[in-house]
Structure formats: C-alpha cells, structure tokens
Simulated assay, not measured.
Amino acid sequence: MGSEGGKWLSLPFLIAFIAATLYLLQTLISPRLMLGHEVVKIKRKPDLPLRFGSDGTFKILQVADMHYAKGKMTRCRDVLPSEFEYCSDLNTTRFIRRMIEVEKPDFLVFTGDNIFGPSTADAAESLLGAFGPAIESRLPWAAILGNHDQESTMTREELMSFISLMDYSVSQINPPGIATENIDGYGNYNLQVHGAFGSDLANTSVLDLFFLDSGDRATLNGIRGYGWIKESQLHWLRSIYEVFQV
C-alpha cells in the first residue's frame, strides 16, 4: 500500500512539473525566439574545425561571379535567343548542386559577385538563393564580396554580417579582436584546416586560408576603376605571418 500510495502521490508532482516546464518555455524562452511575429532561426553550424581526410586530401570547390538576382525571374545573359526563355538564375543553382554532387568537396568558397545588385530588389533574399545549394549540402562554406554585391539593399558590412549568420557558413565580418576602423573592407579573415583525425597533426593547422576584401569601385587620380587590397589589410597579414614564425 505504501509503495502504491507513493506512486499516486508522485503523479500530481509530475503533472505540476510538466505544467511548470511548459509555462517557462512559453513565457521565458519562446519570446526570445521571436522578432515581432517572425520566429528567429538559430544558425546551424558545420562540424569544425575544418580538417583533411584520412586519405590526406582536402577538396575545395570555388564558385565565383554567380551574379544571382531574382531566381527564375532573372534571365541569363549572353545566351542564344532560343535559350533565353528557359535560362535563369536557377540554371546556376542546378549547376552548383551538380558540381557538389560530382566533386564531393570538403569545403565551398564563394569569391565575390555572389549577387548582382542592380538586378536585385532584396539582397537578403538573393543571398539565400545564391547560397542555397551550399546550405542544402550541409558542408562548411565561406564567402567574400565582389564589386556588385553591395549595389542593392545592403552595405558591405551588412552583407558580410548576414552571410556570417547563414547556416553552415564559417565566414567572418573581419578578424576577431581588430576594430573595424583599423582595417579596410569587410570579409577579411583566415580559416585553419587541421590534419586528419588520428594523425599527429589532428590538433594542428596544416593549411591556412586567407580571405580579403578587394573592395568595389574606387577613383584614383580622377580615374574611376576597381578597388584593391589596402595597406591596413597587408598589415594584418604580416601580423599573422609573424605569429607563424614564432
């Protein structure tokens, strides 16, 4: 009887505990996952650190100049008249998916002009479309900007901030610990690739990847052209090099 009475006695406490837990989830945690009426999505992170495989390889798939805009609404340029009606940004999406499937890379790198600002009404939406295949693959990926990315609804800083928060992205706005005003551009960072699991180099970087913002447009001596790597960025590179020499 005592044992059965104890079971019945614990049941109300169990119900009360569940009710209290649900209340806390509803009143304390849920509001933190809401922004207005939109649910705030928590970023999915890739397996880190980046590392070589047991076969000693680390394959990078580089993608440049996607010039993504409005998906199926954006027609291709420089194609035959017979192809124009059927060619859009989605052709780029299918191509990248196919490359990921065939090449089976360990890491994806997007090296600028990811979106085409003049044809983009919503930079965030276009970025989601452009990087969609990378996110779907669940592979780690990184990106930097070209000269067209910021020609829409986001500044270069806003673009890199958004990209750094996307699923499976390992992109960074700028090097940690360096104030924005002390380095030119946005998207300057380095990533380390460790040795294979079980090897003597498993906890050591054997490959460093450096990403730099080469800017967009610039005027020099009255001549309008493209940007370039600035001295502040080279100073940061030298500081990293000095650390490697220790």
Rank of each mutant, 00 (worst) to 15 (best):
G2S: 11
F13Y: 10
F13C: 09
A20G: 12
L25R: 11
L25A: 10
Q26R: 14
Q26Y: 12
I29D: 12
M34S: 10
M34Q: 14
G36T: 07
H37M: 09
H37D: 15
V39P: 04
V39Q: 13
I42Q: 14
P46T: 08
D47H: 12
R51Y: 07
G56M: 06
G56K: 09
Q62I: 11
A64G: 14
A64P: 05
M66N: 09
M66R: 06
M66A: 12
Y68E: 03
K70Y: 09
R75S: 13
R75F: 11
P81K: 07
D89Y: 08
T93K: 14
F95R: 15
M99C: 10
E101H: 15
E103S: 13
L108N: 05
F110E: 00
I115M: 07
P118W: 08
D122R: 08
D122P: 07
D122F: 09
L127I: 06
F131V: 01
R138H: 12
R138I: 02
L139N: 02
W141R: 02
A142Q: 01
N147D: 15
D149V: 02
F162L: 13
I163K: 00
M166F: 02
Y168T: 00
V170G: 01
S171A: 13
G177M: 08
D184T: 07
G185K: 00
N188F: 01
N190A: 08
V193I: 07
A196E: 06
A196W: 01
L201S: 14
S205N: 10
V206D: 02
L207S: 04
L207A: 06
F210C: 06
G222K: 05
R224V: 11
I229K: 03
K230L: 09
S232H: 04
Y241F: 14
